[in-house]
């Protein structure tokens, strides 16, 4: 069984995000990029399937994504069997406000998967910046494959996958899906495994990251970004100042006034 896991580099949201001067995107120059957290969950779910019954897991990224080599080597260090970097995106730079837009990303991945089909495509249900929609169902639509998103567990057997699809309030559906299929993972059955830096270095030294040019398909008209801006400071929260002890005193006062702290 061949499982392809598309992964995406996104800005590390722990950091402050600066906007580009023309206000049509973010300033990517000084940002740190990390694997989209849902893609990390998807990779874990794919590796769990490999652990359980054997599968070839291939991590695939776009050459245009910042720091993508590091992310793909990390995937190899975690247990992926191969890592591929796709080129062929527009050389003019990112097509969306913070990177390659989903429509173009999906078109490249679809071209790759047409040439090298997978039994399962497992990727993150969403990314923090997929303004023009989520990758899994767009990719499935281009490939005419069945798809299920917001998945919290995948099992495979007899040519089909059994997946748990999650809804609000802890409700879920168990669906049986014919393979090949595209699955959008919300969370893996266990927390993503950790790859020690020494093993990532080993993976880098061993090479193992291949580059592949794919013909880009036309992605159709996308959104027209008029401008990006920060949320207006609603000024709603009254900010408490002072030492930790003083602020703690204010908070306990608020709780006591509502009878939520006795005494």
């Amino acid at each position: 069984m061949r499982i392809v896991v598309p992964i995406k580099a996104v800005p590390d949201l722990v950091e402050e995000i600066d906007l580009a001067a023309d206000e049509t995107g973010i300033d990517r120059e000084y940002l740190t990029f990390v694997i989209s957290e849902w893609d990390a969950q998807a990779l874990e779910e794919a590796l769990l399937l490999k652990d359980a019954g054997g599968a070839e897991v291939v991590a695939v990224g776009l050459a245009d994504d910042p720091d993508i080599d590091q992310l793909l080597y990390t995937a190899l260090a975690k247990g992926a069997d191969a890592a591929v970097k796709l080129t062929g995106a527009g050389a003019a730079g990112p097509s969306g406000p913070s990177g390659t837009r989903t429509a173009d990303r999906a078109a490249l991945l679809a071209a790759y998967l047409d040439a090298q089909p997978a039994d399962l495509v497992i990727t993150g249900v969403q990314a923090a910046d997929d303004l023009d929609g989520q990758l899994p169902s767009r990719l499935a639509a281009l490939l005419d494959l069945p798809h299920v998103s917001v998945v919290i567990g995948v099992e495979v057997g007899g040519g089909s996958a059994t997946v748990r699809q999650e809804f609000a309030g802890g409700r879920s559906h168990e669906l049986q899906v014919q393979m090949p299929a595209v699955i959008g993972v919300q969370s893996a059955r266990q927390a993503p495994r950790y790859a020690p830096i020494t093993r990532i270095r080993q993976a880098m030294n061993a090479g193992g990251l291949s580059e592949l040019a794919v013909p880009a398909r036309a992605a159709g008209d996308g959104l027209v970004v008029r401008r990006v801006h920060r949320p207006e400071a609603s000024g709603k929260a009254e900010m408490m100042t002072g030492s930790a002890g003083e602020v703690a005193g204010q908070i306990v006062g608020l709780l006591r006034a509502r009878g939520l702290v006795k005494g």
Partner: peptide
Amino acid sequence: GLDLGAALSVHWDAPLAAY
């Protein structure tokens, strides 16, 4: 919406804005 939006965008040939 996360499940269907982008697929409908392809099949119905309409741009999609998320979030």
